[in-house]
Design a protein around this nucleic acid. Structure first.
Length: 273
DNA sequence: AGATCGGCCTGGACGC
DNA sequence: TGCGTCCAGGCCGATC
């Protein structure tokens, strides 16, 4: 369930801790979602960045002038990164991979094994389709209302499915999609948005995500930061997971529908096609 | 080629 | 208490 705000919070805690550290060796479960991890050993973590829900770490071998490889990490639904022995973290049976660094051990814990860990040639995402086709960062100047409207027009999927596809904009998952659609008063099943509705959704996405980043994300079940703490945004959610509860805007009971195979909570009165 | 749907994976909630 | 069933969901690959 980590979406942009949650991954951003992990990034902010982890970046200063792993930047410029050497990876001594990597141990990992035999999992199809893990690949090329042997390539990480003996290299230095030049930086840690975020694109959408992905964490990216350029890796440089001794003597290289620029990073040749890149670690791509996706937390999936239940992934967490913890530093061994810090903030009370003791490894348990859900640790799927460990990075032995020159000054400590970084554990990747992932109950449901939806997370992904891959080492690729720097910048080469052709085997990671979602990352290769990732839309702009919602809180960057590259995310414009014009561009968003144009991107939505390229597909006839429901707007909810489009948001979850990561193509029109990066980093939105089920929680913030439902929140932004409610705030913009747009029905998740709508397939063609007027420019006006598209603009409302554009603004709502930016607002909802920025607020959640400020509160270090939403902890519903499993999400936790590097220091083990929860995000503070859960109690500020307006609609996600609140079917049956009165709409905060019009008091009509919120309803759960399935859109593109995903549960969605909406207000049947406020949110229009 | 684009849309849609099922599978992956596990724990927790729920019903009987 | 215990067992079975369903749900959560990001992403991917198979199929329509």
């Amino acid at each position: 369930m980590p979406e942009l705000p949650e991954v951003e919070s992990v990034l902010r805690q982890l970046r200063p801790r792993v930047r410029d550290r050497w990876i001594v060796r990597v141990t990992a479960d035999a999992q199809t979602r893990f690949g090329g991890l042997d390539d990480a050993a003996g290299k230095r973590i030049i930086d840690l960045r975020r694109r959408g829900k992905y964490l990216l770490a350029p890796l440089e071998a001794p003597g290289e002038r620029r990073p040749s490889r890149e670690l791509v990490l996706h937390l999936g639904m239940t992934g967490a990164l913890r530093l061994r022995g810090e903030d009370g973290w003791v490894p348990d049976s859900y640790v799927r991979a460990s990075f032995v660094l020159d000054d400590g051990v970084l554990d990747f814990r992932d109950v449901r094994r939806f997370g992904r860990l891959t080492v690729v040639t720097q910048g080469d995402y052709k085997h990671i389709a979602t990352l290769a086709n990732l839309g702009p960062e919602p809180l960057s100047p590259q995310f414009t209302s014009e561009g968003f409207h144009r991107a939505l027009q390229r597909s006839r999927q429901s707007v909810k499915s489009q948001l979850l596809s990561q193509r029109p904009v990066a980093g939105v998952g089920n929680i913030y999609a439902d929140e932004a659609l409610w705030q913009a008063r747009v029905d998740p099943r709508a397939r063609r948005l007027s420019r006006q509705r598209s603009d409302r959704l554009w603004a709502a996405l930016r607002e909802v995500l920025a607020e959640a980043v400020e509160r270090e994300g939403t902890t519903f079940r499993d999400y936790q930061m590097v220091n083990g703490e929860s995000g503070r945004h859960a109690s500020f959610l307006q609609v996600y997971g609140k079917a049956g509860v009165p709409c905060p805007r019009c008091a009509t009971p919120l309803r759960r529908v399935v859109v593109g195979g995903r549960g969605s909570t909406l207000c049947p009165r406020c949110q229009r096609w």
